[in-house]
Write a protein that binds this DNA or RNA. Structure first.
Lengths: 290, 290
DNA sequence: CATGCTCTTGAATCCCTAG
DNA sequence: CCTAGGGATTCAAGAGCAT
């Protein structure tokens, strides 16, 4: 079902409207056609090694680090200088031992020039108790956060909770011009606290993910929205090179950002387009958080 | 304050009673004197690279992996075949980029024969909003779980929650002799569910940590107790090579296990002894969980 | 609007067999 | 001997109702 021609990938979008563009094709090739510094952030859940092989070909663990470095390489030009890349992944167990390909991947990305900004968490309270019965139920995944340097754009309050005990240590923040800090020049005791580096969202029952969504990698759009609020400036552009069912796109539109989605499979490019196209226009979405 | 002689470390315990032994000295040297297969698990929070340098000398990041592999090497003999090692650590930020020494440490341990069983989490809901103000509040740490192979002893229900909906799909488990599974041969609908791979304990307000505890690495004894219940059989022996204020020891005694603590600093060996010695005798402690 | 019950489902993991 | 694929097994957390 691939519409590519012999001359190379078809860079005509599979879908386009004024907020979203969906491409069908190899993500590295599509990214190479995007304009310089046109993307604020990447939020994605790439295929795991040896998983989803029917859809994506199943990258062997030994090749995974280089495969990742390769699709990310053209991003260095396309990403804005303070842009972020957030990658959701967690190693699986093999005879009671976790695989090491994510460690090698992180090290290779670092040595190929990416700055590893932090490791954020996705907690899954309803993670199914499958797998090894003699081990704890595995109920979290990593969100690996990379940038071009240590100064990526970030809104540390985007996912914060309201608090009434802020600004009590005030003073120095004002002098340093940190407008992130509440209580500057005033003795505020109430306001938005900083986000935690942990996002908690259930796997299922995401109101924005329709019942007709069928994809081997369920990725709640609320999680994508959390990431987007954190690292994408309002009105910016979000890219997902493994768009899948389009949950990142749904989240981007809901959060008032633009979306560029890519998927190798026509089926999923179409599903992304269908879901993104159905999103109602953005009116006013504040930062309601985890 | 070091009482070592020129002939080598003093292997006379700094403190001993029928449940606990505290040594003052270099942990690798002390471990080398312990009997074969005498320890069920190690639960520890080692000094981070370049941190706590006033007490422990501050291991440079570049030497940290090898330093870790070295103190763990003699454990291979001392640990029981199904024993576990749980190491609490999280990389710090350096100009907005996380350090990579924990990645290198994990890979070196793996290549030197250790099995990495999983990565568990300690969530710190009350983590203070320190560090970079333009980033999310860092509120978790890793518990790196290693063993001699993938078959370490583990009680997956030790930290579980009670549930009244277990055993509903039961059947084959009984035939396979899996006593981990609830609902065998009966139609139970109530019992202990499996633990999550996430432990949530606040930093402050640990009832078992006396107010006089002063140590540069606050490590709640409730967290240590969670780990001990998970990987140490009842009545077994827990080792902490960086005993510090002795929180692991307090937890071990409370959970009805034996404790072997080691610390390089006389001050902390003494503090561990004081706290462990004050623990009331064990009567009956069930697995009350996170 | 709490509470309780039913119902569904999941980036799992292991083992065994076939190539 | 290693790889690939299929089958069997597992249960907690919502959501959606009914009361």
């Amino acid at each position: 079902m691939n519409t590519q021609t012999d001359e190379g990938p078809n860079m005509t979008p599979h879908y386009q409207d004024d907020r979203a563009t969906i491409y069908e094709g190899d993500c590295a090739e599509v990214i190479a056609t995007l304009p310089d510094a046109s993307v604020d952030c990447v939020v994605t859940s790439p295929p795991y090694a040896e998983q989803r092989s029917s859809t994506y070909g199943g990258i062997p663990e030994s090749e995974y680090p280089q495969w990742t470095a390769l699709w990310m390489e053209p991003l260095k030009r396309v990403l804005k200088p303070r842009g972020s890349v957030i990658i959701n992944i967690r190693p699986h167990l093999n005879k009671g031992v976790i695989s090491d390909y994510t460690l090698h991947t992180r090290l290779l990305l670092r040595s190929s020039g990416w700055a590893e900004l932090d490791e954020l968490l996705w907690l899954k309270p309803d993670a199914p108790p499958m797998g090894r019965i003699d081990r704890p139920r595995r109920s979290w995944e990593s969100l690996h956060w990379f940038g071009l340097d240590g100064d990526a754009w970030c809104d540390p309050k985007a996912n914060g909770k309201m608090s009434d005990r802020l600004g009590l240590s005030g003073g120095k923040a004002a002098r340093n011009g940190w407008d992130h800090v509440n209580g500057i020049n005033e003795e505020l005791v109430s306001g938005m606290g900083r986000s935690r580096d942990v996002a908690e969202f259930s796997i299922r029952f995401n109101p924005d993910d329709g019942v007709d969504v069928r994809h081997p990698a369920p990725y709640p759009s609320r999680l994508a929205a959390w990431c987007i609020r954190l690292v994408c400036p309002p009105g910016g552009t979000v890219l997902d090179p493994f768009s899948g069912s389009g949950s990142t796109g749904v989240a981007a539109i809901q959060e008032g950002r633009r979306y560029v989605g890519i998927d190798l499979a026509e089926e999923y490019a179409a599903m992304s387009a269908r879901r993104v196209g159905k999103e109602p226009p953005v009116l006013d979405f504040g930062g309601d958080a985890a």
